[in-house]
C-alpha cells in the first residue's frame, strides 16, 4: 500500500511540474500585462522601470524559474487588479465554491444513486421510466436556462427562495459557511440544485446500468438462493459492486465542478472562484490566472489520488500485489 501511495505521489509531482510549465507558457503568451498596469501616457522610463520591477525583461526560462522559486515559498504574487496577495484572494473565494460544489455533488450522489438503483432494479415499472425521462431531461437542459427557470419560479414568482448571493454566513475555523444558518442554507439550495442537475442525471444512469446488469448476475442469484432479502441484496451486494465506477465519476465530477462552476456562480451571483477567474481573464490579471490553474491541477490530482485509494478500499483484489 505504501509503495502504491509513494508511486502516486511521485506521478502527482511530475504532473504538477508539467502543469506549471504549461500554465506559465500559456499565460505568458496572452496579452501584455504592462498595458493594463500603467497608464498609456506614462514615460518610457517609468515603463522600463515597471517592466524591470516585474522581471518581464528577463528571458522566459529565467522568469519561469523565478516563478517556480516563488511558488515553492508559497508566494503566488500579487493580483494586478486587487493589489492583494493572490493566495489570500483565492482563499477568500475557495470556501464558497467548495461549499456549493460539495452540496451539489453530494446531493447528486445521495439522491441519484438510490433512485438509479431502483430504476435498475425494476427497469420496466412506470416509476423507473419516469426517472429515466427526468435523467434525459437533466442531460439535455442547458445549465444556464435551468438556473434562470429556478430563479424565475422560486425567487420571482413564488418568492420563497432568495435569487442570489451567499446570505448569512457563520465563521468556523476562520472560514465562512453558509449552510449552517437558515438564511445561508436557503441561499445555497437553488444554486446547488442547478449545479447538481447534470451530475444527478449521470449518477442515475450509472447506478441504473450497473444495477440492471448485476441483478442478472450469478452473485445476486446466489445471494437470493441463500434467502437474503431484496434490500440486503441491493444494499450489501449490488451497491458495493457498482460503487467503483460511481466513485470514479464522483471524483471526476467533483473536480470539474470545483473548477468550472462558472455559469452557476454567475447566474446566482455566488462569490466563488468561477467569478474570480472570469474577471481576472478579462482584466489580464496574470498571477490570479496562474495560481487558479495551478490550484485546479492540484485539486484534480488530490481528488484522483483519493479516488485511487478508495478503489483499493472498495475492491480487495486491487489491494493484493500492492501491499
Amino acid at each position: 500500500m505504501l509503495g502504491f501511495v509513494l508511486q502516486r505521489l511521485w506521478q502527482a509531482a511530475i504532473v504538477v511540474i508539467a502543469m506549471s510549465a504549461l500554465v506559465f507558457c500559456g499565460v505568458y503568451a496572452v496579452g501584455n500585462p504592462i498595458d493594463v498596469l500603467i497608464s498609456p501616457d506614462a514615460t518610457q522610463d517609468i515603463r522600463a522601470a515597471v517592466i524591470a520591477q516585474y522581471g518581464l525583461d528577463q528571458p522566459l526560462w529565467r522568469q519561469y524559474f523565478a516563478f517556480l522559486g516563488r511558488i515553492v515559498e508559497g508566494d503566488f504574487g500579487r493580483s494586478l487588479v486587487y493589489s492583494i496577495p493572490v493566495s489570500e484572494l483565492i482563499l477568500t473565494r475557495l470556501p464558497a465554491t467548495l461549499e456549493l460544489t460539495l452540496a451539489a455533488v453530494l446531493f447528486a450522489s445521495l439522491v441519484g444513486i438510490p433512485i438509479g438503483m431502483y430504476a435498475g432494479y425494476r427497469p420496466h415499472s412506470l416509476v423507473s421510466r419516469a426517472i429515466m425521462a427526468i435523467s434525459i431531461l437533466g442531460f439535455s437542459v442547458p445549465t444556464f436556462w435551468f438556473g434562470l427557470m429556478l430563479i424565475m419560479v422560486f425567487a420571482v414568482q413564488c418568492g420563497c427562495m432568495p435569487a442570489g448571493g451567499r446570505g448569512e454566513t457563520v465563521n468556523l475555523f476562520g472560514v465562512d459557511f453558509s449552510f449552517l444558518t437558515g438564511d445561508g442554507f436557503a441561499h445555497l439550495v437553488l444554486p446547488a440544485l442547478n449545479l447538481a442537475l447534470f451530475k444527478f442525471s449521470l449518477m442515475i444512469r450509472l447506478a441504473r446500468a450497473g444495477t440492471r446488469e448485476l441483478m442478472l448476475s450469478d452473485t445476486v442469484k446466489f445471494a437470493r438462493a441463500a434467502g437474503l432479502s431484496e434490500f440486503t441484496v441491493l444494499s450489501r451486494h449490488v451497491l458495493r459492486l457498482i460503487s467503483i465506477p460511481l466513485v470514479t465519476v464522483f471524483g471526476l465530477e467533483l473536480g470539474s465542478t470545483l473548477a468550472f462552476a462558472v455559469v452557476t456562480e454567475t447566474i446566482f451571483s455566488w462569490p466563488g472562484l468561477g467569478k474570480l477567474i472570469i474577471d481576472s481573464i478579462t482584466s489580464l490579471d496574470r498571477p490570479v490566472m496562474v495560481a487558479y490553474l495551478m490550484l485546479v491541477a492540484l485539486l484534480f490530482i488530490v481528488i484522483n489520488l483519493i479516488v485511487d485509494l478508495t478503489y483499493a478500499l472498495l475492491d480487495p483484489r486491487l489491494r493484493k500485489g500492492r501491499a
Binding site: 452473485t219 458495493r240 480487495p316
Partner: peptide, 10 residues
C-alpha cells in the same frame, strides 16, 4: 461457476 457466485468485494 464459483468465480461468479461469490461477491468479489466482500
Amino acid at each position: 461457476d464459483p468465480m461468479m457466485t461469490l461477491n468479489p468485494v466482500l
